[in-house]
């Protein structure tokens, strides 16, 4: 009897202790991984704000102190990137808009309206998500350079537009390329959303006498506005971040139409090696639009990702 009464407070105590250890351990792990995911970013930003001598002397992740602080690198990187920011936006915004619209239409035709064989057609879209772009790269450059040199045709037109040069015409085939290859993933995203809408809505509209177009315009489009946001954020990030198509269709990093991702790997390097102050500044600036979008719309972004995995 006495044994049990004397033991029970100890038990409770050890339980509490145990519990606390666990909690502490858990949060320690959470913080450790916060470090793991943030240190490369943090180091990059800190390096961007340091003078070259401070970079050489201080710890890479330490914040700049006193004399070591400078905005010169950021300013230089910004001046190098200004044009390419414009190029990236000129390409990414229309490409994303077209992408989202076409994908929503495709998903509507493949989901809300039912006809035989649509699964097979959809499967073709789905495979398109997973195709490595290397498999179309040679034909792509062949097509836009030799078979249908749209950029060359549009060059005089672009030369006539103020603030742009003839070389910017290369953004047109690049945009079209992004639209075409972005359709599969965006269609998959929209389709998963449309499948979650009750079928009876479309059927009711049909019986109400609405045409396929009216159903899309009056019922499906208004209902999928939230999904338009999700897909837009997701796809804009993808296109803005993309490198391979720009690399293939615009080629040089010193081309007037080069988007940000094409210029970044070349910034701040010279025969003596890489100037990391400038390189990190440029990386930070290049990432800034996507980081802002991501932080502002983290939930939509995560939703897009979850849908992608089915």
């Amino acid at each position: 009897m006495s044994q049990s009464t004397s033991r029970s407070p100890i038990d409770v105590e050890s339980l509490v202790e145990n519990f606390n250890y666990r909690r502490v351990g858990k949060y320690a792990l959470v913080v450790l991984f916060l470090g793991f995911f943030l240190v490369p970013l943090e180091t990059g930003i800190m390096t961007a704000l340091k003078t070259n001598s401070a970079i050489a002397r201080s710890l890479p992740f330490a914040p700049p102190a006193g004399e070591g602080f400078t905005l010169t690198n950021l300013e230089y990187a910004f001046s190098q990137l200004t044009n390419s920011f414009v190029n990236s936006l000129l390409m990414a915004v229309p490409a994303t808009l077209l992408n989202v619209l076409l994908a929503s239409m495709a998903a509507y035709g493949l989901t809300m309206v039912s006809w035989r064989g649509q699964i097979a057609v959809f499967a073709l879209f789905l495979v398109g998500v997973f195709v490595p772009y290397q498999a179309v790269l040679v034909p792509l450059s062949q097509f836009w350079n030799n078979m249908f040199p749209l950029a060359r045709m549009l060059e005089p037109l672009f030369a006539a537009i103020p603030f742009l040069q003839g070389g910017h015409s290369r953004l047109v085939p690049l945009t079209i390329t992004h639209v075409a290859y972005g359709i599969p993933i965006c269609t998959v995203l929209f389709r998963s959303y449309y499948k979650s809408l009750p079928n009876s809505l479309v059927e009711a509209a049909k019986i109400d006498g609405a045409s396929i177009t009216k159903i899309y315009r009056r019922i499906v489009l208004p209902l999928s506005l939230p999904m338009f946001g999700v897909v837009f954020i997701y796809q804009f990030t993808q296109i803005y971040n993309e490198f391979l198509f720009s690399f293939t269709l615009i080629t040089g990093s010193n081309h007037p139409a080069a988007p940000v991702t094409l210029i970044l790997p070349a910034i701040g390097s010279s025969t003596e090696g890489i100037d990391f102050g400038i390189r990190m500044s440029a990386a930070f600036l290049a990432a800034l639009p996507t980081i802002i979008l991501y932080v502002a719309f983290a939930e939509q972004f995560a939703k897009g990702l979850r849908t992608e995995s089915g």
Binding site: E203, A205, I207, D208, R218, L223
Partner: peptide, 29 residues
Amino acid sequence: VPQNRDIAMVFQDYALYPHMTVRENIRFG
């Protein structure tokens, strides 16, 4: 097609258009 059959249908889940008011729902057809 359904719209040429002069029919109306009531669904189990009602299938009301969620983004329209009741007035717009009834008016749609």
